[in-house]
């Protein structure tokens, strides 16, 4: 069963890993990915970023992506946490954890989860530059291509 959270607060990798394993001894590996706010975009300094989402659909989409990964890689569990609200450079944005009996499934599922999260979960980033100017981040075709390599969701 996947753990899904959309929250303003930061997350703790150690605490989330412990919660995922919960004392189990049949897990062989846990893949992890942490997305972090970069301090520059296109060579310009970013002062902060605001993450907006679609409450309700976001959790549904994240659960659907997680369930697909759990079935495809026979995961023993996975955790998806996405932060929303105002975030500054260096802060965490997203956490993906995938637990499996062996490393290949854990690592592949982690990559799958973050690729699909970036292209199917309804979040939007607005960057504010140090000049005060703000703009909505454009979707990247590379992200669609990264998700597409896994086949249909």
């Amino acid at each position: 069963m996947a753990t899904i959270h959309v929250q303003q607060a930061d997350f703790d990798l150690g605490a989330e890993t412990a919660a995922l394993t919960g004392g189990r001894t049949d897990i062989g590996g846990i893949g992890s990915f942490i997305g972090v706010v970069r301090g520059t975009a296109g060579g310009r300094d970013i002062s902060d970023m605001t993450l907006e989402h679609y409450p309700g659909m976001t959790e549904r989409a994240m659960m659907s992506i997680a369930e697909t990964a759990e079935q495809r890689w026979f995961l023993q569990g996975c955790t998806l946490i996405h932060r929303v609200g105002l975030l500054r450079p260096g802060e965490n944005i997203v956490l993906v954890l995938a637990a499996a009996p062996h490393r290949q499934a854990a690592l592949e599922a982690t990559a799958y989860l973050i690729d699909w999260l970036k292209t199917r979960a309804p979040f939007w980033k607005k960057e504010r530059f140090s000049s005060g100017e703000a703009r909505w981040v454009d979707a990247r075709e590379e992200d669609d291509a990264a998700a597409a390599r896994w086949g249909a969701l």
Binding site: G35, L51, H53, Y54, M57, H82, I93, V94, I114, L117, K118, T119, R120, A121, P122, F123, W124, K125, W136, V137, D138, A139, D143
Partner: peptide, 10 residues
Amino acid sequence: IAFFPPVTGG
């Protein structure tokens, strides 16, 4: 019914 730009999370 929701309308929005292509998503940019992660």
